[in-house]
């Protein structure tokens, strides 16, 4: 299991665990940006066989992409 991001307002925490592909999105902005967040997570993690959990506290899209990418690199063992 790897993690990236924080639980600060405006940030996103990303957790990637071994297992079949599954995406879990928890967001305080579910009603406003739920669809957009899912699209970004799908896009950035396309093809990854793992369980991806994101806990969003109102992160902008570029923050989401950066956190996802950091978690992906850790998951693939590309160093800290």
């Amino acid at each position: 299991m790897v993690e990236a991001g924080t639980s600060e307002k405006g940030d996103m925490r990303v957790i990637i665990e071994e297992g079949p592909r599954e995406i879990v999105v928890k967001s305080k902005l579910e009603r406003i940006y739920g669809e957009a967040i899912r699209r970004t997570v799908e896009e950035v993690t396309a093809g990854l066989e793992a369980k991806i959990t994101v806990e969003d506290l109102g992160a902008l899209d570029w923050v989401i992409r950066a956190r996802l990418e950091a978690a992906l690199r850790k998951f693939r063992g590309e160093g800290e």
Partner: peptide, 10 residues
């Protein structure tokens, strides 16, 4: 541009 287009409230 910064935030993306918000969904309409349900």
């Amino acid at each position: 541009r910064i935030c993306g287009k918000p969904q309409e409230p349900k």
